[in-house]
Design a protein around this nucleic acid. Sequence first.
DNA 1: CATGTTATTATCATACATGATAACTCTGCG
DNA 2: CGCAGAGTTATCATGTATGATAATAACATG
Lengths: 177, 177
Amino acid sequence: MYDNNMTGESLSCQLRSRRRQLGLSLAEIARRAGTSAPTLSRYENGWDRFEVGTLRKLADALDAELLIELRPRKITRLARTHRSRAIRRLARLFWDHQLTESDFSIYPVWIVERVLEYGDLDDLRTVRRLFGSGGFIDAVARARFASPKTRNFWDQILKLEGRSCTRKFSRSAVWIC
Amino acid sequence: MYDNNMTGESLSCQLRSRRRQLGLSLAEIARRAGTSAPTLSRYENGWDRFEVGTLRKLADALDAELLIELRPRKITRLARTHRSRAIRRLARLFWDHQLTESDFSIYPVWIVERVLEYGDLDDLRTVRRLFGSGGFIDAVARARFASPKTRNFWDQILKLEGRSCTRKFSRSAVWIC
DNA sequence: CATGTTATTATCATACATGATAACTCTGCG
DNA sequence: CGCAGAGTTATCATGTATGATAATAACATG
């Protein structure tokens, strides 16, 4: 907290720190949260198996916002050479999105799906160079295809690489909830 | 996810988006997480009462990092005039910390505790002007004092304001876990 | 068309998070 | 010193998250 950076700190630490920032007692926060001081003491002293609902109540009692995020851990490595030029070239295939470089690292399957469906041969070469041969093949194997023809085509290519498409053609490859 | 900003999105949405980014089936992620596809489907379709342990398992299975953070919501309003000059003046009292303006908003009790103990009369006037009269008195009422004398002094002042110190003198006002 | 894959919904048994309560310790104050 | 406030640890009953399982629907393929 002295670093103004609480990310990664245990929940117990966060709960205690925030309560002390407010200068309030266990009993007061417990009252606000609809729990008990002994329970809150347990939470502040190392407990880590919370229900999210409990954390929500506690956050409210502590005048704080509960943020829960799944942050992608495995970032795909991109080739270094001509990276920004390659990405600029491919950007036209994503006319409906503001494409950033991190999209390539974080969403390789999505990128490859789009390029497979709308890109030309040079686009394919470009994205293959960006992801590397193995990374590219891996993403293709997992991609959903927008037409049976595309899928069949790539299935043949993948067979030459000793593996096949794991996904089918799909009419709606919807990514949002 | 098209905005590359998943903060604030429901957990269901985050789980589904991440799985689709990876191009994997419910069954595969469920296998990795040690759960079942019907359970995972339930989680992706609006369930929101998770245990943190469950989220941890799912994050691992999705090659993602689970971040849980309590972010202070109530930010104390600071007076606008002479703000940065006032903060610069008070910075010498925080010799052991790199003080930022947001510290004043987020940790008013801590700031006031430090000023009460080490500051002079002008410092007190400065911090009172920054927080406003009510905000200042509120923080004082909640502060832990480092000596009985300080506490007694301020208890008298607070009584003139119609309230009293809610905390005692304490030898160790430790803020970290 | 039959078959396989993927996803969804419902039901149920079990483990456990939660809060209430009791007992205890520590600190500060009059 | 006695008392009050704050915090800690243990115990227990209750509600519910979780995963297993069954059934069903939708979609794609040969």
